[in-house]
Design a protein around this nucleic acid. Structure first.
Lengths: 196, 196, 196, 196
DNA sequence: AATGAATGAGCTTTCATTCAT
DNA sequence: TATGAATGAAAGCTCATTCAT
């Protein structure tokens, strides 16, 4: 009784995800370079050969992990895709960024380690740079709408604060409780816009 | 007739620095794990063997680089070493942190990449964790003195902002001009302390 | 379709033995330190990488060789494992020691070179020292039973003679024919016990 | 006031001996291959360069050590150089061999480790083989004179006993006290000659 | 689809030896 | 005579990747 075409596809998808998950965990824990394909395969419970059946290379696995994560960040941004950021959408974006970290700390730890490494960061910029810039422009517009006297400067400060807070939450969660920081940062963002 | 003690010492000092500089550049550019000792030696214009004459291991080079950088951060903190942070000392610390980055971007790029890499970060925490905590305590005390209603929360926000701004200055200086951010962040820090 | 568990196991077993044999030959011929893993792999007709697939380290190969040899010595000792050495068992032990050398000269050449090398000898003592002592005690008991006036002294002389004769048989078989020495030594051992 | 030709020669001789002594100690303690020239020079308190001024290579140092030792063994043999071994000369040889070990255990430990390593043993055989054979012939003659029924066999047994006892004294002096073994072995040698 | 034996390039590290001074 | 910085070949070992089965 051979499985149907569809069943095979489903199995493939699950196996692939299994490898991705194993890799993520190990990369986050021990670093990309210190994790061997042997360990990834072993953790996933498959052979090395099979892993190479699903991915072209070790780097390929990393790329796929990063892509997934990048996509998920921006799905929380400009919810109705009208190119304009409302106060609610802005707050939603900030808060959801924190929540995303709470849900998948391993990934974000790996992610932040990865984007710091210039060789990788550059190739990512090429791929995702455009999207990044669109977001910055929307934020800029939003800050202006809020009546900022120095939109450019405020944008810099706010994006520094958001990035910094996400970073400390990721790297030292024992000192920076997620929920508390989420509230403080959200509030601070609004307060930092210089209106007078 | 052999060279004098002094001559040998001078040679050693210069060569060692040469190797450190080469390593810093390559580590920052390509990451620690992706940089081989061969490349370091080649860039320094010496043989691999000589590099090992000056350093016990590749890790040893990294450690020395990190130590130097770490020391330089905290030389700008609590200038008179009385354990108490004044308004002026606080501002001086913030501003000098930015200036330090301006002076040695390469190092700070490496530094920020390194502290994100879990395998390396842990051994650093063991070495420098104590000093880090002392600083946090002094900052906490300072924020209280400034009349904060929520010192703990404000400390988290401020340190997030400072770390985040240093990070963006390091990783995307073309979008975040150093001097401008320095002023904005310094001012924002004072404004963020909730006094009412 | 992959090979069966059994097939893989068989391949592993054979290749492992192949590497062990090559290593033994080279270690015996040129010494442990003067034999590189490259040479071992080359002689076995495999890649260096594969050798490390089967053994954790070069030392690991040596350990396995030594263990095998050590086990084989003492399987000829105290045949019925009752802790007491009879006249027949004693003679059997002596004679079989010679026979063992005849069967695997290479190993014994390596073995005797190894136990002389202080750095390696120490770790062996830790592993096998206990067994060695048990044997000496049994020999001591045996010599007493034979009516020796100076068991301690006789034990020293006899074990010197046995060790020495095995040594010369190993290192200069052209001058010391195995069978002839076996007979002479066996007889001498009994004659050396001072009964009057 | 320049030193005289003779004084210089004396200094050279002392320095050379210093290096030889340091090398011997380290070779015996850690093995030849595990001892670096750096350590030898350091222990002797001279520079590496100077060591190479006195010796052509590391191997050269070892050769000189071995040669010295070899010469010293046979200076105790056939004292009056008449080619004939008397009972007294024989006993003197045995006893002095033990005494030599007592005087310089380090050397003999190294020596016995070295001669076990076949690559070295071979080159030694070429150099010292002749002398060895002369000794064996004299011993053979001596045993005949003593009225042995099986001179060839007795020679094998006796030389095995002597070599073996020297070996155990060197490698496990805590279990085989030198003086005691010297007496027992000397006596046993005479007893082992089969006269009936 | 699946296995793991096998490869080989490249890594970190060591060290006997040389040589400018 | 004396120094130690400098070299370079080779060591032990790792691991991404391939491929016969």
């Amino acid at each position: 009784m051979p499985r149907s075409q569809k069943q095979y596809k489903e199995i493939r998808k699950q196996k692939k995800q299994l490898i991705l998950d194993s890799a993520l965990e190990l990369f986050a824990e021990n670093g990309f370079h210190s994790t061997s394909m042997s360990k990834v395969a072993q953790k996933a419970g498959v052979s090395k050969g099979l892993a190479y059946n699903y991915f072209e290379s070790k780097q390929d696995i990393l790329d796929e992990i990063i892509k997934t994560g990048f996509d998920s960040i921006y799905s929380n941004f400009d919810l109705n895709h009208d190119g304009i950021l409302t106060r609610e959408e802005f707050e939603h974006f900030i808060r959801n960024s924190f929540k995303a970290i709470g849900k998948n700390r391993k990934f974000w730890k790996l992610y932040s380690a990865i984007i710091m490494q210039s060789d990788i960061a550059e190739s990512m910029m090429e791929k995702y740079g455009d999207r990044s810039q669109i977001i910055m422009q929307m934020l800029n517009q939003f800050i202006k709408t809020m009546g900022s006297k120095d939109p450019e400067g405020d944008l810099m400060v706010i994006s520094s604060l958001v990035k910094g807070s996400l970073l400390v939450v990721i790297s030292a969660p024992e000192f920076f409780p997620l929920k508390q920081l989420e509230d403080k940062v959200t509030e601070a963002c609004f307060r930092l816009i210089t209106t007078k």
